[in-house]
Amino acid sequence: MKNKSLVSIHDYSKTDYLRIMDLAEEFERNPRNYGNLLTGKVVATLFFEPSTRTRLSFESAVQRLGGRIIGFADSSSSSVSKGETLKDTIKTVSQYSDLIVMRHPIEGSARWASEVSDVPIVNAGDGANQHPTQCLLDLYTMKQTQGKLDNLIITMVGDLKYGRTVHSLIQAMLYFSPSFHFVSPEELKMPNEYKMFLKEKKIPFKEHHDLSEVLKISDIIYVTRVQRERFSDPIEYEKVKNAFVLKNSMLEDTKPGLKILHPLPRVNEINEDVDTNKKAYYFRQALNGVYTRMAIISSILGLK
C-alpha cells in the first residue's frame, strides 16, 4: 500500500481491506499514541466540488495524527476557476504536499490525477464513480458491530440505482460471503450489471418493494437517500418518498444485534425517533470514517 494511490476499491485486495480495518481499530483503541505520527507531513485536500462532511472527516483524521493540511473547499476560489487543467493543478499541488485527497465531479478524474501526481492520491469521490474510503469505513463499521464480516445478512434500502456506496459495498463484500436484500422503488432498483455480478459470484440476493418483509432477518440495514431529482416523474417521487421511511416502531422484533447504517446526510428516510434506539449506528459510522481515513493515510505514507 505504501506510496500507492487509493482511487478505486479495486486497488485493494482482501488483505489490504483487513489491514486497514485492523489499523483503524488500533487508532480507535489507542488514539493518544498516534498524535505525532504525521508530524512534518502536509496533506492537501482538494475539493473541486464541495462535500463538507467528507472533507472534515479527512481533515480530522490528518489533525488527529499531527499532520498539517492545505487545500480548498470548492473550486470557485482556486486557480481552477481561471481555467487551469486538472493535470496542472495536481502536478503543482503534488510539489507542496506528501499526499493529495481529492474530490472532483468528473468520473475518472482521480485515476488521471494519480497518473500525473508526484505523490499518492486518495479519491474522496469522483462523480458517480468511486468513493473507496466510504466503502472501507462501511466495512469497518459492519465488522465492529457484528464482530465479524463473514456471512452477514445485509439489507440495502433506498436509491440502489444511483447510490455509489451500495454498489461499492456489494463488490467489496465479495470476499465475505454475504447475502443481500434490496428494497427500493421500482425506478431506483439495483442495476442489472450488479445483479449479474452477484449471480456470477454466487452471492444470494433478493429484491423487495416492502421494507417490513426483511427487517426481522437483517444483521445490517444500510439506508440511502432517495433524491427527488432522480425521478423522471415528480408524482412518482411523491408516491414513494414515504414508503421507505424507517421508523422506530418498525424495529420491534428485529435481531438484537441489528445495526442501522447510513452514509449521511439523511433527509427523512430514517425518522428521527430512530436516533435514540441502540440499533441506530449512523453517527458512530461517521466517527469510524475518521479512524478508517487515519488508517488509510498512514498506510499510504508508510508510517504504519
Binding site: T85, K87, I106, E107, G108, W112, A128
Partner: peptide, 13 residues
C-alpha cells in the same frame, strides 16, 4: 469512452 462525464471526454486525456 461513451460516458460523457468521463475525464477523457472533458480534458485532454
Amino acid at each position: 469512452c461513451m460516458n460523457p462525464k468521463c475525464i477523457t471526454n472533458n480534458e485532454d486525456v
